[in-house]
Design a protein around this nucleic acid. Sequence first.
DNA 1: GGCTATTTGTACGTATGTATG
DNA 2: TCATACATACGTACAAATAGC
Lengths: 235, 235
Amino acid sequence: MPKTPVWKSIATALTSEIAAGHYRPGDKLPTESELSARFGVNRHTVRRALQDMQEKGLTHARRGAGVFVLAEATDYPIGKRVRFHQNLEAAGRMPAKRILTLQTRPCDRDEASALQLKSGDPVHVYEGLSLADNVAVALFRSVFPADRFPGLLEDLDHMRSVTRALAAVGVKDYTRASTRLTAKTATATQALQLNIAEGAPILRTVGINVDTDGCPVEYGHTWFVGDRITLVVED
Amino acid sequence: MPKTPVWKSIATALTSEIAAGHYRPGDKLPTESELSARFGVNRHTVRRALQDMQEKGLTHARRGAGVFVLAEATDYPIGKRVRFHQNLEAAGRMPAKRILTLQTRPCDRDEASALQLKSGDPVHVYEGLSLADNVAVALFRSVFPADRFPGLLEDLDHMRSVTRALAAVGVKDYTRASTRLTAKTATATQALQLNIAEGAPILRTVGINVDTDGCPVEYGHTWFVGDRITLVVED
DNA sequence: GGCTATTTGTACGTATGTATG
DNA sequence: TCATACATACGTACAAATAGC
């Protein structure tokens, strides 16, 4: 049972009230003092909750005026689980993978940070191309902690599936802790591998997958060809 | 001459040192105590600076371990030109909308399909710019079935909020049925409106919002400036 | 494994500054 | 002008996670 901070409970309570229509977009929330009195906490604890909501785009504070509910509240938050490649299969195409590299090497600082390793610890690196109907639609690179999964490379080579290979080494379930999406343009190397023009639009995703204990098991990058791929996010 | 908060000066100083290579991705920053001693401020003031940097994706704290520099630092617009406007940007985001067009016209095939209308049925179209601190970060276009919401345009014009305008015509709640994400490059028109270069990377989202009965009420497109926006999918 | 020191996270308190209405 | 309300900054104390012995 994870202990929930007080400020988070307050943020949840206020968010629920907004979602329930108790406060509508444009409305002014009670003052920090009123809220701290209502919840029986210090004003700074309320501020921590309001700050969390502001980061999520729910509210917006104006010094001297008050805290207001934003109209965009329900507009943006994108769903919970992202399923890549989904539209490929739905379209009746034949997804395939082509392995580019399978190797074990010392991790760099970036990978160490994401996987909570020490810089230089060994990692398995799985790079490849995703194909649909023999057309390259994405480049991917998955990085795994090698010390924890000694035999993973063979499984990846054999099964050609991250999910199944991880299952083979004891990771029954894993979830995406976070995914960041941004638009880029293709580098020369990427353009060559994906058979597109340099500077063509690329949708890059960076994600960390964690096991049921919250321990990172995979650090993955994917570069989708903008013209050939659309990601689907469903609630 | 705007008075700069101490925490912001500290964040700027630490960010500069990261940019200068003094601290590299994966490195551990000095402890909060050491930094507060170095800058001669309270630990909470340092925490406020570190928190600001974490929001920008520059650093990442691990309780009991320390604060570490993340690799993605250069992906975020804190790097170059924005540093001139950093005071404005970090002063708190001011989301705003600028209406470009508000009109009613017959729908095209695509819109008819998304909204479950017949081709040529009237739709309200709401196009505009999303601004943060007076910088355009996204273009959007929302399409609504006009027959179902006759007076929606006036509400949109007046309230400048899709959520509230829909509430005014009886749609108390709506949810995002699906979102599709893809990478594009900016067209000449988009580049002009978003004040970016033609061909710059754009993150496009296409979504359909449905009411509690599952009936589509809005068909929306958003074009985010890749350099200025990173979408984060959590959980 | 256990223990301890270190380090970040939470929560409280107090005071003062600054913009709003 | 003035009270209100959020922003900054100082302080204290303890909890929770980590790392090292």
